[in-house]
Structure formats: structure tokens, C-alpha cells
Design a protein around this nucleic acid. Structure first.
Lengths: 215, 215
DNA sequence: GATTTTAGAGATCATTTGATCAATAAGAAA
DNA sequence: TTTCTTATTGATCAAATGATCTCTAAAATC
């Protein structure tokens, strides 16, 4: 018997509302990329072009009209998934001393987890990390410089106690929060529907430790 | 061009010290499983049997003398990787009130991260999680019942303040620590060589939050 | 040393899968 | 309506890959 260990095509109905019509290139391309995001998130980056095309209700060869290779399709998927997830204004939010630091961090992590706690993002990020894609390192570097380091600076500035956090403390806070998404979407283990209470407690715990009271 | 997105066989020298001799079945089987652990950790569970056999310096067909299918080989890999990682005595350690709680938690997480912060374990755990293997959920369930819930109980018992942690707080602590390994082995991003200081700070921060002083 | 057992190699099969290309028909242009 | 463009299909290729089978030679047994 010929067995493969890849997840393959999980029971996915071919687009049942099949108009079977010719689409304008731009539309079709977008449709393909969006389906590919969902498909690769589920099946992994080793998912086959045939399974993807079946899910779209188009022929496999049509994919090659829009992408030179599977690799370039995956690249388009990355672009689509990563693009515009990190909002530059979050930086201003974190630095806005008109707001209490706790409030700023709460808002930041609420917005951040709203953005990345999706089945597609979480899993594709993991898949690409495991595949050794440079993207992840760049993403985390950007995250650190644009948001986490400013956050660290603000906490240090507010810290009443002698102790101030270092970058590893920040990563610890960050990891504790992100782990919620990993449990939910990678390990597919039960997690609270609303993650905000857990996040709030994590942030409060963190700030309290550096002498920044809730009140 | 025929391109595949799988990591394939990363520049791995075929066992250069090739004695090329006949091994007794038990030895050969073990040799295969150990090589498979390293190989699948690197290439993912979709790595090919041919690449694995090449790395071992044996023929691909020989693998099938020892395993019915690739699937059963992967199962043997799981068994090898998961088996005996979690030491039952850690539970007794966590419950040993002769030791300060902080000390118990410190020792537990030192032992735990010593056990799982390896390239093989971290990556194979992620791969199998993404592949939808039930194993991960079972593992985490076991971890929770055997260690994390006892830990939660001990913290609640020691908590001076009115507030006591709930399971999500424990997962937050746990996630913050495990994230170190994810950064190192999955995202392959720089992390401190010695993780103990960061772990110590995370534990102290946690305990302090529930009124359990270091001193 | 002769005989038997079986670990291992090598060839090969059947699918799978990324990719290509000529033929077709849907829709726009005339 | 007719003509033209091109999105889409269907057939096909070549390489990759899990699996099987026969044969050989190393080691165990006598």
C-alpha cells in the first residue's frame, strides 16, 4: 500500500456553489491565494497542488497560469498572511504616556492577539518556522524592535523598584501570552473562549513584579 | 523544474565510519530509530525514507525489513522521543513540603527543561502537533494532571493572599518558560545559553504575585 | 569445514506530484 | 452576429517516493 504521512486533503468540499465561470485574472489570483492560505494552514506546506485545486473546483494546471511554481504560490501565501498583521500605530499606543502603562499593554496585547490568534496565522507561522524559513526570524526581529523594546523601555521608565525587566523578561511575558494561541491552534487543546482575562492577569502580574501597581 | 517544498535531506554526511557490517536485528532497529529521530526532527515527518536510509548508509529497502511502513517507523520515533521524558518522581518533588515551594518549582522546571529542550523533542513535538497527532493532546493532559495540577494545589495552599491562581495562570507560567525552547528550536532565534536565570525570574514573579515571597 | 539461516543489497512497481502544452470555449470587441 | 482574445481544461511528462521481491553473502549452527 502506498501511504503518505502528510495530512493530505482533509474532508474539504469542493466549492459547492460552483459558478464554473471564467474569472478575471486578478479575482482568480486572489481567490487562489485565499484558498491556499486556508489549505496550507490545514495540510501544511507540503500539501499538494492537486488537493488545493480540487478544493477550489479548478484544475491543477490552472494554478500554474497564476504562479510559476508551488514555491511562488507559497510565497504569495506568506505575503498574504504576514502582511499588515503588525499595525505601526501600536508603537505609538505603547509610547503614549497619557495612558496608564497597564492600559497601554492591555490594549496592545488585545489588538495583537486579535490579529494573530487565527488558525491560519498560527499554523502557517509554525510551519514556516519549522521549514527553516527566514521569515520567522525577521518577523520576530521586527516585533522586538518595533514593539517589545519600546514596551521594555516604558516599563523600565515606570518601574518604581530598583529592579527593571530585561529583554528575556519581556519574551517571557510575550511567550506566556502567545502560548495560548499555540495550545489552541497547534496542539488543538481546549482554551478559554475569551483570552483577555488570562492576558490581563499575566500583564498585571508582570507589572506588579516591577512595582507598577494596577491602581 | 520539479521542485518540492519539503526540507529534504539537509547536508548530512552518510555515516562515514561505515563498518558496513551485518548488525543483529535489535541493534540495527535501534540504530534506525535513533537516526530517524534526528532525521525527522530536521526534515519533518514528510522526510523521505530514501534520505533517511542514505544518512544511515543502508539501502532504503532495509528499512522495510524492520518496519511495515513509514507510518510504523514514525510511531517508533514518537515512542522513542516521548518515552521517559516525564519522570514520575517530579510529582513527589513538587509535593515535598519539606522544601520551600520556590525550590520545588525551580527544580521541577530545571529538570523539565533539561528533558525537553532538545532539537529533537521540540521539533518533533511541533511537527506531530501540526499533523494533528492525538499524541500531543494526550501528552499535555498527562502533564497537567501529573504535574501542573499538583503544582497549582501547592501554590494555592501556600498562597498568603486572598487570590489564588487558576489553571490558566499555570499555563501562562508554563508557556512563558516553554516559549524559550520554541524560540530556540522552532524559530531558531538566539536565546540565552543558560535558561535557568530566566526561568528563575519567571517563577519568582509568579510566586510573588500570589504572596509567596522568595524569602 | 559444510550447512543453514537471514541481514542486507539491488532492481523494480505503482502512485503521487510538480510542471508543461496543445486544444477549447467563455466572454469581450467589432 | 461574427471575430478575437485568453481563461480554463485535459492529457501527459518526468521525477520522487512508499513499498515489494528476488538474490547474495555474512554469520550462526552443526
Amino acid at each position: 500500500m502506498h501511504m503518505t504521512l502528510k495530512p493530505g486533503a482533509p474532508t474539504a468540499p469542493a466549492n459547492s456553489t460552483a459558478p464554473k465561470r471564467r474569472l478575471r485574472p486578478a479575482e482568480r489570483r486572489l481567490q487562489i491565494v485565499e484558498a491556499a492560505v486556508a489549505f496550507f494552514a490545514e495540510a501544511g506546506l507540503a500539501g499538494t497542488t492537486r488537493d488545493l485545486s480540487q478544493r477550489l473546483g479548478i484544475t491543477q494546471s490552472l494554478l500554474y497560469k497564476y504562479f510559476d511554481s508551488k514555491e511562488s504560490l507559497v510565497e504569495a501565501v506568506f505575503e498574504r498572511v504576514y502582511l499588515d498583521r503588525l499595525q505601526p500605530e501600536w508603537r505609538a499606543l505603547l509610547l503614549d504616556r497619557a495612558l496608564p502603562l497597564r492600559e497601554r499593554m492591555l490594549r496592545f496585547y488585545t489588538a495583537y492577539t486579535d490579529a494573530i490568534f487565527t488558525y491560519e496565522w498560527m499554523r502557517i507561522f509554525m510551519f514556516s518556522g519549522l521549514a527553516g524559513a527566514q521569515l520567522n526570524a525577521r518577523y520576530l526581529g521586527h516585533l522586538r524592535v518595533a514593539f517589545l523594546e519600546p514596551m521594555l523601555g516604558e516599563i523600565a521608565a515606570s518601574a518604581a523598584s530598583a529592579r527593571a525587566p530585561d529583554m528575556e523578561d519581556i519574551w517571557n511575558l510575550h511567550g506566556g501570552i502567545v502560548y495560548l494561541g499555540i495550545r489552541r491552534f497547534v496542539y488543538q487543546t481546549p482554551t478559554p473562549d475569551d483570552v483577555r482575562p488570562a492576558i490581563q492577569r499575566a500583564i498585571d502580574r508582570f507589572l506588579r513584579d516591577f512595582g507598577i501597581g494596577e491602581r
